[in-house]
Amino acid sequence: MVPTSYYLILSAIIFVIGAAGVLGRRNALIIVMCVEMMLNSVNLTLIAFARQWDNLNGQVFVFLVMAVAAAEVAVGLAILIAHYHQSKSTNIDDVNVMKW
């Protein structure tokens, strides 16, 4: 059996890669994908913990995260398209995310 901690570190690596993508990329679509990746890494964490604790709560949680991810993508892509029609660009630099 592969210990839980291995899964956790794997998912942490994926989470951080996703987070780096959100902060580093300017293309909104890729940012959406990175967020999806982050949610997936959380799912991995949850499932690993569910096995460790031998209860189903973690798996139920994963179910919900999947529902949320689907809803988020639907809404997010709708926003993206609306913005694209507005500005003909999804380059997030124009949005200037990090402006204080």
């Binding site: 690993a48 949680f61 997010g76 993206l80 949005v95």
Partner: peptide
Amino acid sequence: MKYFLLGAFASAFFVYGAAFVYG
């Protein structure tokens, strides 16, 4: 768009935190 991208990003953190609390 900005709200969505950062909000989704934050949600990921939130749910990651919840996962650890569960763990």
